[in-house]
Design a protein around this nucleic acid. Structure first.
Lengths: 139, 139
DNA sequence: ATGGATGCAAATATTTTGCATTTTG
DNA sequence: CAAAATGCAAAATATTTGCATCCAT
Protein backbone atom coordinates (compact mmCIF):
# COMPACT_ATOMS: atom_id res chain seq x y z
CA UNK A 1 0.00 0.00 0.00
CA UNK A 2 1.44 3.29 -1.07
CA UNK A 3 0.11 6.69 -0.23
CA UNK A 4 0.65 8.96 -3.18
CA UNK A 5 -0.92 12.22 -2.15
CA UNK A 6 1.15 14.56 -0.07
CA UNK A 7 -0.80 15.90 2.85
CA UNK A 8 0.24 19.52 2.39
CA UNK A 9 1.92 19.81 5.73
CA UNK A 10 1.67 22.95 7.73
CA UNK A 11 4.58 25.25 7.02
CA UNK A 12 3.97 27.98 9.53
CA UNK A 13 1.79 31.05 9.44
CA UNK A 14 -0.15 32.20 6.45
CA UNK A 15 1.44 35.53 5.92
CA UNK A 16 0.73 37.51 2.79
CA UNK A 17 4.32 37.05 1.61
CA UNK A 18 4.35 33.34 2.10
CA UNK A 19 1.06 32.94 0.27
CA UNK A 20 2.35 34.95 -2.65
CA UNK A 21 5.51 32.90 -2.88
CA UNK A 22 3.61 29.64 -2.74
CA UNK A 23 1.10 30.87 -5.30
CA UNK A 24 3.92 31.76 -7.64
CA UNK A 25 5.51 28.36 -7.22
CA UNK A 26 2.20 26.76 -8.09
CA UNK A 27 2.05 28.54 -11.42
CA UNK A 28 4.59 26.36 -13.13
CA UNK A 29 6.66 23.30 -12.38
CA UNK A 30 9.85 24.81 -13.76
CA UNK A 31 12.92 25.25 -11.61
CA UNK A 32 13.54 28.88 -10.64
CA UNK A 33 16.08 30.57 -8.40
CA UNK A 34 15.21 32.60 -5.31
CA UNK A 35 16.33 35.69 -7.14
CA UNK A 36 14.11 34.98 -10.13
CA UNK A 37 11.09 34.34 -7.96
CA UNK A 38 11.76 37.51 -6.03
CA UNK A 39 12.11 39.54 -9.22
CA UNK A 40 8.79 38.26 -10.54
CA UNK A 41 7.00 39.09 -7.30
CA UNK A 42 8.50 42.55 -7.23
CA UNK A 43 7.61 43.04 -10.88
CA UNK A 44 4.02 42.32 -10.00
CA UNK A 45 4.10 44.84 -7.25
CA UNK A 46 4.14 42.35 -4.40
CA UNK A 47 6.13 43.69 -1.48
CA UNK A 48 8.33 40.76 -0.49
CA UNK A 49 11.91 40.90 0.68
CA UNK A 50 14.56 38.75 -0.87
CA UNK A 51 15.45 37.44 2.56
CA UNK A 52 11.90 36.25 3.04
CA UNK A 53 11.96 34.47 -0.29
CA UNK A 54 15.12 32.64 0.72
CA UNK A 55 13.77 31.76 4.14
CA UNK A 56 10.44 30.61 2.80
CA UNK A 57 12.03 28.43 0.15
CA UNK A 58 14.20 26.87 2.80
CA UNK A 59 11.23 26.17 5.01
CA UNK A 60 9.23 24.69 2.15
CA UNK A 61 12.16 22.54 1.14
CA UNK A 62 12.55 21.17 4.65
CA UNK A 63 8.84 20.47 4.74
CA UNK A 64 9.14 18.55 1.50
CA UNK A 65 6.76 20.88 -0.31
CA UNK A 66 9.25 21.82 -2.98
CA UNK A 67 12.23 20.31 -4.78
CA UNK A 68 15.56 21.94 -5.08
CA UNK A 69 18.77 21.37 -7.01
CA UNK A 70 21.94 23.18 -8.03
CA UNK A 71 22.68 24.32 -11.55
CA UNK A 72 26.21 23.79 -12.82
CA UNK A 73 26.64 27.53 -12.27
CA UNK A 74 26.10 26.99 -8.57
CA UNK A 75 22.74 28.68 -8.31
CA UNK A 76 20.17 26.86 -6.28
CA UNK A 77 16.82 26.46 -8.00
CA UNK A 78 13.43 25.43 -6.66
CA UNK A 79 10.13 24.15 -8.00
CA UNK A 80 6.95 22.79 -6.59
CA UNK A 81 6.92 19.05 -6.27
CA UNK A 82 5.47 17.59 -9.39
CA UNK A 83 3.51 14.41 -8.99
CA UNK A 84 6.19 11.99 -9.90
CA UNK A 85 9.91 12.18 -10.09
CA UNK A 86 11.37 12.66 -13.52
CA UNK A 87 14.46 13.78 -15.37
CA UNK A 88 15.24 16.06 -18.26
CA UNK A 89 16.48 15.61 -21.77
CA UNK A 90 17.89 18.98 -22.74
CA UNK A 91 18.99 20.31 -26.11
CA UNK A 92 22.43 21.85 -25.89
CA UNK A 93 21.61 24.30 -28.69
CA UNK A 94 18.05 25.50 -28.15
CA UNK A 95 17.53 24.38 -24.53
CA UNK A 96 14.33 22.56 -25.45
CA UNK A 97 13.54 20.30 -22.54
CA UNK A 98 11.70 17.02 -22.49
CA UNK A 99 10.66 15.39 -19.24
CA UNK A 100 11.44 11.71 -19.04
CA UNK A 101 10.53 9.12 -16.47
CA UNK A 102 12.70 6.12 -15.82
CA UNK A 103 11.79 3.31 -13.48
CA UNK A 104 15.02 1.69 -14.55
CA UNK A 105 17.15 4.50 -13.26
CA UNK A 106 15.19 4.92 -10.05
CA UNK A 107 15.58 1.25 -9.30
CA UNK A 108 19.25 1.27 -10.16
CA UNK A 109 20.12 4.21 -7.93
CA UNK A 110 18.20 2.68 -5.04
CA UNK A 111 20.07 -0.53 -5.50
CA UNK A 112 23.48 1.09 -5.69
CA UNK A 113 22.82 3.23 -2.62
CA UNK A 114 21.50 0.30 -0.61
CA UNK A 115 24.47 -1.82 -1.59
CA UNK A 116 26.72 0.76 0.05
CA UNK A 117 24.49 1.25 3.06
CA UNK A 118 23.44 4.77 2.12
CA UNK A 119 20.12 6.15 3.37
CA UNK A 120 18.00 9.23 2.61
CA UNK A 121 18.87 8.77 -1.02
CA UNK A 122 18.20 11.26 -3.75
CA UNK A 123 19.66 11.65 -7.19
CA UNK A 124 19.91 14.04 -10.07
CA UNK A 125 20.11 12.99 -13.70
CA UNK A 126 20.16 15.25 -16.69
CA UNK A 127 20.70 14.19 -20.28
CA UNK A 128 22.22 16.65 -22.72
CA UNK A 129 22.28 16.33 -26.48
CA UNK A 130 21.25 17.98 -29.72
CA UNK A 131 17.59 17.74 -30.68
CA UNK A 132 16.54 16.68 -34.20
CA UNK A 133 15.57 20.22 -35.22
CA UNK A 134 18.91 21.70 -34.25
CA UNK A 135 20.80 18.79 -35.75
CA UNK A 136 19.19 19.34 -39.16
CA UNK A 137 19.92 23.08 -39.02
CA UNK A 138 23.57 22.20 -38.69
CA UNK A 139 23.83 20.07 -41.81
CA UNK B 1 38.74 -0.34 -31.52
CA UNK B 2 38.68 1.98 -28.54
CA UNK B 3 41.50 4.17 -27.35
CA UNK B 4 41.44 4.38 -23.59
CA UNK B 5 44.48 6.41 -22.70
CA UNK B 6 44.15 10.17 -22.65
CA UNK B 7 46.96 11.94 -24.46
CA UNK B 8 47.66 14.44 -21.67
CA UNK B 9 47.04 17.52 -23.71
CA UNK B 10 49.13 20.59 -23.28
CA UNK B 11 47.60 22.99 -20.80
CA UNK B 12 49.91 25.96 -21.10
CA UNK B 13 53.19 26.72 -19.47
CA UNK B 14 54.87 24.56 -16.92
CA UNK B 15 55.00 27.05 -14.14
CA UNK B 16 55.93 25.94 -10.64
CA UNK B 17 52.42 26.70 -9.39
CA UNK B 18 50.70 24.77 -12.13
CA UNK B 19 52.97 21.79 -11.59
CA UNK B 20 52.27 21.80 -7.88
CA UNK B 21 48.52 21.96 -8.41
CA UNK B 22 48.60 19.15 -10.95
CA UNK B 23 50.83 17.05 -8.71
CA UNK B 24 48.38 17.51 -5.84
CA UNK B 25 45.47 16.48 -8.03
CA UNK B 26 47.36 13.36 -9.01
CA UNK B 27 47.69 12.27 -5.40
CA UNK B 28 44.13 11.11 -5.02
CA UNK B 29 41.03 10.76 -7.13
CA UNK B 30 38.80 12.40 -4.52
CA UNK B 31 36.81 15.50 -5.29
CA UNK B 32 38.23 18.60 -3.61
CA UNK B 33 37.32 22.27 -3.78
CA UNK B 34 39.64 25.00 -4.97
CA UNK B 35 39.82 26.26 -1.40
CA UNK B 36 40.77 22.85 -0.04
CA UNK B 37 43.47 22.36 -2.63
CA UNK B 38 44.81 25.82 -1.94
CA UNK B 39 44.87 25.20 1.81
CA UNK B 40 46.82 21.98 1.36
CA UNK B 41 49.37 23.64 -0.88
CA UNK B 42 49.79 26.51 1.54
CA UNK B 43 50.07 24.09 4.43
CA UNK B 44 52.96 22.44 2.64
CA UNK B 45 54.69 25.74 2.18
CA UNK B 46 53.98 26.03 -1.53
CA UNK B 47 53.50 29.65 -2.49
CA UNK B 48 50.40 29.57 -4.69
CA UNK B 49 47.66 32.15 -4.84
CA UNK B 50 44.03 31.15 -4.54
CA UNK B 51 43.33 32.96 -7.77
CA UNK B 52 45.86 30.82 -9.56
CA UNK B 53 44.29 27.68 -8.16
CA UNK B 54 40.91 28.75 -9.47
CA UNK B 55 42.30 29.70 -12.86
CA UNK B 56 44.33 26.55 -13.22
CA UNK B 57 41.40 24.35 -12.30
CA UNK B 58 39.30 26.13 -14.88
CA UNK B 59 41.94 25.64 -17.55
CA UNK B 60 42.36 21.99 -16.70
CA UNK B 61 38.61 21.47 -16.77
CA UNK B 62 38.32 23.04 -20.20
CA UNK B 63 41.16 20.87 -21.41
CA UNK B 64 39.33 17.80 -20.13
CA UNK B 65 42.13 16.91 -17.74
CA UNK B 66 39.93 17.03 -14.66
CA UNK B 67 36.31 16.46 -13.72
CA UNK B 68 34.21 18.91 -11.84
CA UNK B 69 30.81 18.96 -10.18
CA UNK B 70 28.78 20.90 -7.63
CA UNK B 71 28.02 19.71 -4.14
CA UNK B 72 24.51 20.34 -2.84
CA UNK B 73 26.11 23.08 -0.73
CA UNK B 74 27.01 24.89 -3.91
CA UNK B 75 30.74 24.39 -3.73
CA UNK B 76 32.43 23.33 -6.93
CA UNK B 77 34.76 20.40 -6.54
CA UNK B 78 37.41 18.96 -8.82
CA UNK B 79 39.37 15.76 -9.28
CA UNK B 80 41.64 14.20 -11.82
CA UNK B 81 39.89 12.19 -14.49
CA UNK B 82 39.81 8.54 -13.88
CA UNK B 83 39.67 6.27 -16.88
CA UNK B 84 36.13 5.40 -17.78
CA UNK B 85 32.80 7.08 -17.39
CA UNK B 86 31.18 6.63 -14.01
CA UNK B 87 28.93 8.28 -11.48
CA UNK B 88 29.17 9.21 -7.83
CA UNK B 89 27.47 8.20 -4.65
CA UNK B 90 28.11 11.09 -2.30
CA UNK B 91 27.51 11.43 1.43
CA UNK B 92 25.59 14.58 2.21
CA UNK B 93 27.29 14.86 5.60
CA UNK B 94 30.94 14.00 5.14
CA UNK B 95 31.20 14.22 1.34
CA UNK B 96 32.68 10.73 1.15
CA UNK B 97 32.44 9.72 -2.46
CA UNK B 98 32.10 6.31 -4.02
CA UNK B 99 32.48 5.77 -7.73
CA UNK B 100 29.85 3.65 -9.33
CA UNK B 101 29.54 2.31 -12.82
CA UNK B 102 26.19 1.56 -14.36
CA UNK B 103 25.69 -0.08 -17.70
CA UNK B 104 21.99 0.07 -16.95
CA UNK B 105 21.94 3.83 -16.78
CA UNK B 106 24.18 4.30 -19.77
CA UNK B 107 21.93 2.11 -21.85
CA UNK B 108 18.80 3.80 -20.58
CA UNK B 109 19.97 7.32 -21.35
CA UNK B 110 21.05 6.26 -24.83
CA UNK B 111 17.67 4.72 -25.42
CA UNK B 112 15.73 7.73 -24.19
CA UNK B 113 17.82 10.12 -26.24
CA UNK B 114 17.53 8.01 -29.37
CA UNK B 115 13.80 7.71 -28.95
CA UNK B 116 13.57 11.50 -29.12
CA UNK B 117 16.04 11.80 -31.97
CA UNK B 118 18.75 13.43 -29.86
CA UNK B 119 22.38 13.10 -30.88
CA UNK B 120 25.73 13.90 -29.27
CA UNK B 121 24.36 12.65 -26.00
CA UNK B 122 25.97 13.10 -22.61
CA UNK B 123 24.55 12.85 -19.14
CA UNK B 124 25.27 13.59 -15.53
CA UNK B 125 24.07 11.49 -12.63
CA UNK B 126 24.91 11.97 -9.01
CA UNK B 127 23.43 10.09 -6.10
CA UNK B 128 23.26 11.79 -2.71
CA UNK B 129 22.56 10.15 0.61
CA UNK B 130 23.90 9.58 4.08
CA UNK B 131 26.67 7.03 4.42
CA UNK B 132 26.52 4.30 7.09
CA UNK B 133 29.15 6.00 9.26
CA UNK B 134 27.35 9.31 9.37
CA UNK B 135 24.00 7.65 9.84
CA UNK B 136 25.22 5.86 12.98
CA UNK B 137 26.70 9.07 14.37
CA UNK B 138 23.24 10.57 14.17
CA UNK B 139 21.41 7.92 16.11
C1' DA C 1 61.61 39.82 -25.58
C1' DT C 2 57.04 38.86 -25.24
C1' DG C 3 52.91 36.81 -24.33
C1' DG C 4 51.11 33.82 -21.00
C1' DA C 5 50.87 33.25 -15.89
C1' DT C 6 50.71 35.03 -11.34
C1' DG C 7 48.89 37.38 -7.21
C1' DC C 8 47.02 40.95 -4.79
C1' DA C 9 43.10 43.66 -4.05
C1' DA C 10 38.72 44.68 -5.26
C1' DA C 11 34.48 43.41 -7.45
C1' DT C 12 30.59 39.98 -8.11
C1' DA C 13 27.31 36.90 -6.86
C1' DT C 14 24.75 34.21 -3.85
C1' DT C 15 23.02 33.07 0.42
C1' DT C 16 22.83 33.71 5.50
C1' DT C 17 22.36 36.20 9.86
C1' DG C 18 21.48 39.96 13.56
C1' DC C 19 18.07 42.63 15.15
C1' DA C 20 14.32 45.87 15.46
C1' DT C 21 9.58 45.94 13.89
C1' DT C 22 5.30 44.00 12.28
C1' DT C 23 1.82 40.51 12.04
C1' DT C 24 -0.70 36.18 12.68
C1' DG C 25 -3.18 33.06 15.47
C1' DC D 1 -0.41 38.97 23.90
C1' DA D 2 3.33 35.91 22.47
C1' DA D 3 5.55 33.67 19.14
C1' DA D 4 6.61 33.71 14.51
C1' DA D 5 7.64 36.18 10.34
C1' DT D 6 9.46 40.10 7.94
C1' DG D 7 12.98 43.21 6.00
C1' DC D 8 16.82 45.93 6.09
C1' DA D 9 21.62 46.08 6.46
C1' DA D 10 25.63 43.74 7.18
C1' DA D 11 28.20 39.42 7.19
C1' DA D 12 29.72 35.24 5.29
C1' DT D 13 30.96 32.37 1.16
C1' DA D 14 32.50 31.39 -3.18
C1' DT D 15 34.31 32.78 -7.30
C1' DT D 16 35.85 36.18 -10.81
C1' DT D 17 38.30 40.15 -12.67
C1' DG D 18 41.56 44.35 -13.29
C1' DC D 19 46.06 45.24 -13.55
C1' DA D 20 50.89 45.56 -12.60
C1' DT D 21 54.59 42.36 -12.34
C1' DC D 22 56.95 38.11 -13.31
C1' DC D 23 58.82 34.32 -15.86
C1' DA D 24 58.80 30.28 -19.23
C1' DT D 25 59.72 29.71 -23.77
Amino acid sequence: MTVTDHPRRATGRNTRQRCEIIALLEETSEFRSAQQLHAVLRGRGAKVGLTTVYRTLQTLTEAGEINTMRLPSGEQVFRRCSPGHHHHLICRDCSRTIEVVGKTVEAWTELVAARHGFTDVEHTLEIFGVCPQCASKRG
